Amino acid sequence: MSLPTIAVTMGDAAGVGPEIVVRALSSPELGGLARCVVIGDAGRLTRAAELCGVDARIKPVADPAEATGQPDVIEVLDLDVVPGDLPFGQLSEAAGEGAYQYVAKAAELAMAGRVQAICTAPLNKAALHAAGHRYPGHTELLAELCGVPEVSMMLSTGQVRVIHVTTHVGLLDAVERIEPGLVERTVRRGHRTLVDSGVAAPRIAVCGINPHAGENGLFGRGEEEDKIEPALAECRADGIDAQGPLPADTVFFRAGRGDFDLVVAMYHDQGHGPVKILGLEAGVNITVGLPVIRTSVDHGTAFDIAGTGAADAGSMLEALRQAATLATRP
């Protein structure tokens, strides 16, 4: 089987994206898994390689089909949209515009079948907004670019997988948005993703909204009974092993010891907190429901260390590995 081609977006040029990209793509651990082409800025990647002490040649290409996957060569589709003197670690409209254009180009290539997966370095939401692109983040941006009305965010580590019913909204808004149809669709997307990745009969734990999953009506206003239980009944009727609603304060421990293959979190921090305790270098973000494969790091632009060469590329490397694995499955 020929190697898949992965479009790697450079992220916010003022953040750690360029550094983690050059570190990951120059790692021998990636060898033989995929051909990667960076959608970004050749000059910025060259600067990042110097900062990180990476001995790799930055090679512009005109098309992803030219990517060879040679060791010690980082191939880049150079959009040349950020100024050469752009400072690291500072919010920049120019960097936000560049981050948008990298993702838009990657989505265009993936939708046309010219790359088999997208792997994204982090962008900065404030910079994206400053450039006039009003999206909460990558997930929502990619959904619009790919023409999909609804997607889900899944975080994957070596110990747990988590899919979210709601993500980038305030807590009060999240509780308002949660309803049986959305919960059911999220569970089904998670189930299908695990089946497609080789888990024949996924065991799915579904978190409650309130402490102790409502404690049989003692906490909250009946959200578990009204918003979650009807959805789980529909899923179980189709043979999906969806257990819950379960207390979120214990379910991640149970998932970590192997009781479940997937946890369904109701809102952003309910799912992100446990995953990030396990280590930012371990987490990978997968967008579920797109017509293309997309993985990403599970951390931000880290302006405080950008430009120092100190950024850890572990999450980026794992995101590339998972993109390559997903792209080679039938």
Rank of each mutant, 00 (worst) to 15 (best):
A126K: 14
V151L: 07
D249P: 09
L145K: 02
A7Q: 02
A143S: 08
E19L: 05
G256E: 10
V264Y: 05
T139M: 03
G98F: 08
T301C: 10
V73R: 06
P4W: 03
D12T: 06
L128C: 05
I305T: 03
V38L: 09
S315F: 09
V251M: 07
V61F: 04
D80G: 15
Y100F: 15
T295I: 02
D196M: 13
T120V: 05
A242E: 00
G300N: 06
V37T: 01
L171F: 13
M10S: 06
G283C: 02
Y102K: 03
L171M: 10
A324E: 06
A14M: 03
L25Y: 07
P247T: 03
G32N: 04
A49Q: 02
V169A: 11
P71V: 11
I20A: 11
I6K: 04
K276N: 07
R44F: 12
L280D: 04
A62N: 15
T325Y: 15
R221H: 15
A107S: 13
Q159E: 14
V82L: 07
R161T: 01
P71D: 13
L33R: 14
L290E: 06
G11M: 08
E144C: 11
G11Q: 05
D72A: 14
T120Y: 09
R294P: 03
G258Y: 06
P122F: 07
L172S: 15
R44W: 10
A24S: 12
L145N: 08
V61Y: 07
L145H: 07
Q159T: 11
I178M: 11
L79V: 10
E281A: 13
G309N: 08
V175R: 12
L262E: 01
A311R: 02
E184W: 04
I6M: 03
R236W: 00
A313R: 01
V251W: 03
D41K: 03
A233H: 06
T308G: 12
P291I: 01
S26H: 14
R185N: 10
